[in-house]
Design a protein around this nucleic acid. Sequence first.
DNA 1: CCAGATACTGTATTTTTATACAGTATCTGG
DNA 2: CCAGATACTGTATAAAAATACAGTATCTGG
Lengths: 203, 203
Amino acid sequence: MEELSPRQREIFLWVRERIVATGFPPTRAELQAAFGFRSPNAAESHLRTLARKGYLSLQGGTARGIRLAAGKGEAAGLPVIGRVAAGQPILAESVAEGFLPIDRGLFAGADYLLRVQGMSMRDAGILEGDLLAVSQRKDPRSGQIVVARVDNEMTVKRWYQEGHQVILMPENPDFAPITVDLRTQSLAVEGIVVGLLRRGEFL
Amino acid sequence: MEELSPRQREIFLWVRERIVATGFPPTRAELQAAFGFRSPNAAESHLRTLARKGYLSLQGGTARGIRLAAGKGEAAGLPVIGRVAAGQPILAESVAEGFLPIDRGLFAGADYLLRVQGMSMRDAGILEGDLLAVSQRKDPRSGQIVVARVDNEMTVKRWYQEGHQVILMPENPDFAPITVDLRTQSLAVEGIVVGLLRRGEFL
DNA sequence: CCAGATACTGTATTTTTATACAGTATCTGG
DNA sequence: CCAGATACTGTATAAAAATACAGTATCTGG
């Protein structure tokens, strides 16, 4: 598929956004007005180029007869994060395994899905390979399950706090709790777990 | 909101289906042709009635200027099933707790979500309150987790079969396996578990 | 029984909309 | 350097589309 020029890309994104915002594709006149063209043929010409390059299709002689090509709609869903290198931001694009088609309303406030590694939370029903829906909030309450960085290691534990004292509690007797004194040690909360999902070979 | 007459309902569902199928709303001429009206004003009149009753809105003087009213799109997602009475079909409307906005591609072949009751599968990471995505297939392979009816009781267990012998294996030492001889006992497989999700107070 | 609803027919007009055709200016890769 | 691309201007026409207005037939709830 051919590349789009910057202007073409701008026009394509606008068309796509208009379809979402209004429920139907725009007309040439609407495109002309939005981009300040003096001639309707500018709009027509750009749409024909986008169609020729495979980004959308035009249904001839039909009002608003514009369809986005398959796969060209907005990317829906949440990114799936596997392993995160020490020190690297979680949502760096380079670490995402892909996207899953999840309505963001399903898990309240979720920003990404994190692949579980290890069995420290087994007795909470969180197994290796599970996907945790994580909201990038940093204000956990005691009892919530968090994604935290301790000494640059990612960990998922249940959070308990009393004053300066934080306990990151595993739920597997084979793992020891992690105790952190916030006055003398650093602890980064990356997010709060708001959901879990499991499928395929992990069942 | 006023009730629709049968014909109005038929027309409304057709408009909605056309929006999904084509990516844009139909014209009056398309509606006229689809329903065999001899006059375009029949189409116009029905659309105005649907708008007046609050099912859609019309943007005047605009080609294809039809929008579904909020909440009138197709219900997306999967039904959530809580308790199922003995003998009752799972997907009877009356037992659904609601719908969750889940893309059906997320869990391959899923037909409904079943709320877990009991802890018999705890060591498989399936806890009370979890939602299991279930595909209404009745041909499980050994090792798969199934939803079955034994003596009219719903149960979720891992399926193992050798010849006529089926073992429905819990994964919690507090529960006994269920052994079934298919030659002499009846066993109904309602579906195969294809996914799990957990959120909210169950975390 | 009948007013008011639904469900259309019929005709016509206006506006919207797509698109054809002819052209210019600028940019850029070979 | 230049062919071929992008990014438009300008004008015009034809077809699509919405919608107005006038009407009939049937149904149904009060």
